[in-house]
Each structure stands twice: as structure tokens, then as C-alpha cells.
Write a protein that binds this DNA or RNA. Structure first.
Length: 110
DNA sequence: CCGTTGACTTCCT
DNA sequence: CAGGAAGCCAACG
């Protein structure tokens, strides 16, 4: 609770299992209770490059399973390539079988 | 201090 | 179905 919003976002994202993905809204809803603040999660991701250990931001996508943040990576294709390297099929920035790869933040507590 | 922007979501036209 | 606008909160100039 005393952890800052950003820190908690980082912690959750770092706990995302390999081959799984989550959404901004899911994290936002899990932390703040409202999915309206999903932008803050994105903002946290923007600062994720300044923290250590690095946050696997490529496992965080929008609610549609769309790789909206791909342009913030070193290369526009890195996000997709990393996901595919983990067994996630990505077609035109859209995760295939997104529901099957979806991971809820609540799982990290278990 | 105030206006703009942003890796989102949802509603409205 | 596609595009625009509003709501959200925090950081930046």
C-alpha cells in the first residue's frame, strides 16, 4: 500500500509469466479499482525504462489485445517479435487467441 | 501555475 | 463500421 502506483505496476508486470500477457485496464482496475485510469499504467510503462530490473512492457497490451505501445520500443517490431518468441501469435499488432494468453494480476498473489 | 500530452477506454455521431 | 470527443490522472515544459 505504501508503494507508489508506478512501483506496483512494475512489480505486477514483472510477475507476468512468460507467454502470458495482461492489459492496462486490468492492472489499473486491480490497483486503483477503476479501469478509467488505464492511462496511468501506460504512463508508468513510459517510465519503466528508468527502473531496474527492466519491466517486460511488451507483455502489456490494451484491452483488445492490440500492441498499442509498440512504437515505444527500440524498434516497432521488437514488441511483436518478443511476444512471438514467447509463443504468442501476433498478427498485425493484434494478439491471436488473446483470451487464452490473458493473465490477470490477481494470479501473482497465488 | 497553467496548458499540453500520453504505451487507454468508452461513448457518441 | 469508422472516426471524433470526453473522461481519467500524472508528468513535463
Amino acid at each position: 500500500m505504501q508503494n507508489a502506483f508506478f512501483e506496483r505496476v512494475y512489480q505486477i508486470v514483472r510477475e507476468i509469466p512468460k507467454g502470458k500477457v495482461t492489459t492496462y485496464s486490468a492492472i489499473s482496475e486491480y490497483l486503483t479499482g477503476t479501469k478509467r485510469s488505464a492511462r496511468m499504467v501506460g504512463w508508468a510503462m513510459n517510465a519503466s525504462h528508468t527502473v531496474y530490473p527492466p519491466v517486460p512492457a511488451h507483455r502489456v497490451v490494451n484491452k483488445n489485445g492490440l500492441l498499442t505501445g509498440f512504437r515505444h520500443f527500440a524498434t516497432p517490431t521488437q514488441m511483436q517479435e518478443r511476444l512471438e518468441a514467447e509463443g504468442i501469435i501476433v498478427k498485425n499488432l493484434q494478439i491471436q487467441d488473446f483470451e487464452k494468453h490473458f493473465w490477470h494480476p490477481n494470479e501473482m498473489i497465488l
